[in-house]
């Protein structure tokens, strides 16, 4: 199970890539595997400012719907629109082209609350 060391993670199985004050967010390889074939990623919070743990979208697999929780407070400044036509990219490349949103971080202190790769690996029993 792939858990890139340079990323941060949440207990909701999202990953966070930090670049300056911008965080790119997606779901982990473990999460996409559990969900199965992803058929729809819906994000309608673009340009909105949300608190940490608020729902910023939903990911739908054939059999299930899961809410997506924002790992860090901030403004949603980008949505990966390529997922509208190719949601299966989340299955095939969860840490790369399957990214979901970019967030302009408003509360940098929250970063400390994220899990590192080792802690996330422990969470999923990897």
């Amino acid at each position: 199970m792939s858990i890139p060391a340079e990323l941060k993670y949440t207990k909701d199985h999202e990953w966070v890539r930090l670049e300056g004050d911008v965080a790119t967010v997606g779901i982990t390889a473990f999460a996409q595997g559990e969900l199965g074939d992803i058929v729809y990623v819906e994000v309608e919070t673009l340009d909105e400012t949300l608190e940490k743990d608020e729902v910023f979208g939903t990911v739908e697999a054939v059999k299930t719907v899961s809410d997506l929780f924002l790992p860090l407070s901030g403004e949603i400044i980008a949505f990966n629109e390529a997922l509208e036509d190719a949601p299966e990219t989340v299955n095939s490349d969860p840490y790369g082209d399957g990214w979901m949103v970019k967030v302009k971080i408003s509360t940098p202190s929250e970063i400390e609350e994220l899990l590192d790769a080792a802690a996330y690996g422990e969470l999923i029993g990897a």
Partner: peptide
């Protein structure tokens, strides 16, 4: 991937539901 269904341990998918 196995799931409980109607009291049985059943295969829900192998390579993926769409395939």
């Amino acid at each position: 991937k196995m799931v409980p269904f109607a009291g049985y341990n059943m295969p829900v998918s192998y390579e993926g539901v769409n395939a």
